[in-house]
Amino acid sequence: MTKKITLKINGTEHTMEVEPRMLLVHAIRENVSLTGTHIGCDTSSCGACTILIDGKSAKSCTVLAVQAQGKEIATVEGLATAEGLHPIQEGFHLNHALHCGFCTPGMMMRAIELLEKNPNPTEEEIRWGISGNLCRCTGYNNIVKAIEWTSAKMQGKDLPSTEPEFV
């Protein structure tokens, strides 16, 4: 039996008929064609499918679409505005925090909640904060730098250097 649900994604309402077993990530990618949210492991390990539900980061491969009825969903497509990139996108861009880019949408959505709860995290807090997101390219250092940079930017502080470090 299908259910009629309305998902509010990045401020726009989408009404659809879904089977209760449809995962939220599939509803977002296939029914709404927002393919910026990636499917990596499909087992809630990798974090590539991370989105925000009512501001809380969630692995959308482990949430049913019917559970998101009436909730505010934010995906990577909603970050940039007419004025330009979101600070977290700018941070990832300037700090070379991606190689292949597959983990990046999930990583950024997770970082947004992390910075909202803890605007000025230490390096250790950032590493614990993104412990549910796997990146197989960068070795994480530039991702941590990007989040530190974004933290400074969002608080109007002096921006750390974005020059690559050679060690």
Binding site: G47, A58, K59, R110, G132, N133
Partner: peptide, 12 residues
């Protein structure tokens, strides 16, 4: 709680 799964899972 710090050692249970990861932050996204702990949100649920």
């Amino acid at each position: 709680t710090k050692l249970i799964a990861d932050p996204q899972v702990r949100n649920f």
